[in-house]
């Protein structure tokens, strides 16, 4: 017998969290533009510019469509990234979590990228083609060190569930306080930089070279959907980082403090992802852009090497 009440409650909570996620994502968009503007000594748009953009784009009539794949692609991206978000423990609160969900997350992260590639391809624009090839190469490049670090964490905490890793870091035993995972966090942060497509790994978008890359042919609702995907992407990727290394932002135990714990944890989680994103923005602001082969070299030569050392360290630690 299905408990419909509990199920309804869960669905409501999930809907709320997803909405919250999108809201935070939109906020981050404006935030990023403001920060970048300030670093460039400009005034910049208002911090709520993200909301304005999305609503404006969704209000516009879509004049150009490149066939049904093009339409599907936008949907694909949004659906994929939302699904990933649902599998992430947010502030220690996991909505859909099973044993081994960390693999699932790594997997599902590929779906929006696929949708993105499809949509860009369907537009038939050569700039989009260049951008998407570079995006795929970058993805391939950062995934290797990231997966290595994540496997190291799985070995260390002996669990394949992200919720398990978060739980293991409760009571402020954050992974980042261990020297080996401090280095791991730096490695993963480099990968995060690539995931977020920020400098020095923003070659797929390369705003000044290839006319905003993959997004070039999108307009109106399609562009709105893709922007939403990118915004949610920021939240998802930073949350993944926080969950892995910063204990998911959990500082109070729910069992002990009740609803207060939820509020505090959510605030801490929000602060942490903002911090991580802010860090990414700072790196973005001061670094020049790598060319694609340089990015590959960086990830596979240095980042992956360090990740491998971490992995070996963990294996040695576990086996002794």
């Amino acid at each position: 017998m299905v408990d419909f009440f509990a199920l309804g409650e869960q669905i409501l909570v999930m809907a709320f969290l997803v909405t919250l996620g999108y809201a935070i994502g939109m906020f981050f968009n404006g935030f990023a533009r403001k920060i970048t503007a300030r670093i460039h000594n400009r005034v910049g748009p208002p911090i709520y510019q993200g909301y304005i953009d999305v609503f404006k784009l969704f209000g516009k009539k879509t004049n150009i469509s490149h066939g049904w794949i093009f339409d599907l692609a936008a949907l694909f991206s949004i659906a994929g990234i939302t699904l990933v978000f649902l599998f992430l423990p947010v502030a220690g609160f996991s909505m859909l979590s099973t044993d081994g969900d960390l693999f699932l997350i790594l997997y599902l992260l590929a779906i929006p990228a696929l949708g993105f590639a499809l949509g860009a391809g369907a537009s038939g624009n050569p700039n989009a083609a260049v951008g998407i090839m570079r995006a795929l190469m970058t993805m391939l490049a950062y995934e290797l060190p990231l997966v290595m670090v994540i496997v190291a964490m799985m070995v260390h905490y002996n669990t394949t569930s992200l919720a398990g890793i978060v739980a293991a870091q409760s009571n402020m035993h954050w992974a980042i306080f261990l020297p080996v995972f401090l280095i791991g966090a730096i490695v993963a942060d480099m990968a995060l930089q690539g995931m977020l497509m920020e400098k020095p790994f923003d070659i797929p978008i390369a705003p000044h070279e290839i006319a905003t890359g993959p997004m070039v042919e999108f307009g109106g609702k399609h562009l709105g959907a893709l922007m939403l995907y990118k915004m949610m992407g920021i939240v998802v990727e930073t949350t993944l980082f926080v969950d892995l290394f910063l204990g998911g932002g959990v500082i109070l135990s729910v069992a002990q403090y009740g609803w207060l714990a939820y509020v505090v944890n959510f605030l801490v989680w929000f602060g942490l992802i903002t911090f991580v994103f802010f860090l990414a923005l700072l790196i973005n602001a001061v670094f020049p852009r790598f060319r694609i082969e340089q990015a590959l070299k960086f990830y596979w030569k240095y980042d992956a090497l360090v990740a491998l050392l971490i992995l070996i360290w963990i294996f040695v630690e576990v086996s002794t």
């Binding site: 696929l114 590639a117 499809l118 391809g121 090839m133």
Partner: peptide, 10 residues
């Protein structure tokens, strides 16, 4: 496979 799908569009 993403590249493969991408190649088939347009």
């Amino acid at each position: 496979y993403a590249r493969f799908l991408f190649k088939g569009t347009g």
